[in-house]
Every structure is written in structure tokens, then in C-alpha cells.
């Protein structure tokens, strides 16, 4: 993708954000009007100025410069996806089970081919986290909060 156009879109977005931020202070209660509201307005001004400068710079920049987000898009998107799914299923089965699934699957897709070794590594990492957090520091790990669609 061309860096120029992304930069322009982002700069405009931040200018709009600055305007919204500035306007939001109008509804502030009296006790905040001369204190925090002033601070927020100040941030809004600065953001508008910086974004405007960036906008001008971007418009004058060369459209040929491309941004490469990922050199290996397949692995990149698989990681994003597996992270989202991982965090999602923690709510259903808790931390331990979801980690035991996430680790070998992710390792496999990231290019680790020794299946048995990956299972051993996954189990050791999970055990390490369990011992360190639960046994030594008595910090609870995320638990299942939903089973069969009903919240516990």
C-alpha cells in the first residue's frame, strides 16, 4: 500500500479527532471547566497542529513509497487470528486448556515441525506458568466464565 495515502487518511482522522475532543469539553461540569477541560483543549490544539503539519508533509510526499506490513503475510495473519481465537476460547475453557491447544497449533503454523517435541514444550510452558503464578504467587489464572453460552 502507498504510504502517502495511508498517512493522509490518518492525518485527517486525527484532525477530526482533535475537533471532537475540543468540542467534548463544552459539556464538562463546572468543577472541571477551568482545570481538566483546559488541559484537554490544549491537547486538542496540539494534535490538530501536528496532524495538519503531517497532512501537508504527506500531500507533498512521494506516492511511490510503499509500506510493507508483513514479509510473510500468511504467518502474520495466522498469528493474528490464532491470538484472537486463543483469547476468545479462554472464556469458555479457561487458561490451561486453551493454552495447551494454542501453543502446539501456533508453533506448527509458525513453522515448527517436530510434533512430539512441540507437545512437550507446550506442556512445560503451561506447567511453568501454573507453578509460578498459582503455586508460588497465588495469582489465579483466567478461568472459564462461560459454559454452553451461559455465563457462570
Amino acid at each position: 500500500m502507498s504510504k502517502k495515502y495511508i498517512d493522509i487518511v490518518l492525518s485527517v482522522f486525527f484532525i477530526v479527532l482533535a475537533v471532537l475532543l475540543y468540542r467534548s469539553t463544552a459539556t464538562f461540569p463546572k468543577s472541571a471547566l477551568f482545570t481538566t477541560a483546559v488541559y484537554i483543549k490544549f491537547l486538542a490544539y496540539l494534535l490538530a497542529i501536528a496532524s495538519f503539519v503531517q497532512l501537508v508533509k504527506s500531500i507533498r510526499s512521494d506516492a511511490a513509497i510503499k509500506v510493507i506490513f508483513a514479509k510473510n503475510p500468511k504467518k502474520f495473519f495466522i498469528l493474528i487470528l490464532s491470538l484472537i481465537i486463543y483469547v476468545w476460547i479462554i472464556r469458555y475453557v479457561g487458561f490451561i486448556i486453551s493454552t495447551l491447544i494454542f501453543l502446539p497449533v501456533t508453533m506448527r503454523y509458525m513453522g515448527y515441525e517436530k510434533f512430539r517435541k512441540s507437545i512437550i514444550i507446550s506442556a512445560s510452558i503451561t506447567l511453568f506458568v501454573y507453578v509460578l503464578f498459582v503455586q508460588i504467587f497465588s495469582i489465579q489464572l483466567p478461568e472459564a466464565t462461560i459454559i454452553f453460552g451461559a455465563s457462570l
Binding site: 483469547v87 487458561f95 493454552t99
Partner: peptide, 30 residues
């Protein structure tokens, strides 16, 4: 990298959870 990426992801999830015991924070982290 294949091992490291998976392992660090797990530590990142548990690390962002444990500060406030909050799954919301894990979502924020992502």
C-alpha cells in the same frame, strides 16, 4: 522463532491478565 512467538504470546496474555485480574485487559492488549 516458531517456538518463541507461541511462548511469548502466552506470557503476554497471562501478563496483561494478572495485573488487574481482568480479561478485558487481555483484549486491550491485543
Amino acid at each position: 522463532a516458531s517456538i518463541l512467538i507461541a511462548a511469548i504470546s502466552v506470557f503476554a496474555v497471562i501478563g496483561s491478565y494478572a495485573i488487574n485480574n481482568s480479561m478485558f485487559d487481555v483484549g486491550l492488549m491485543l
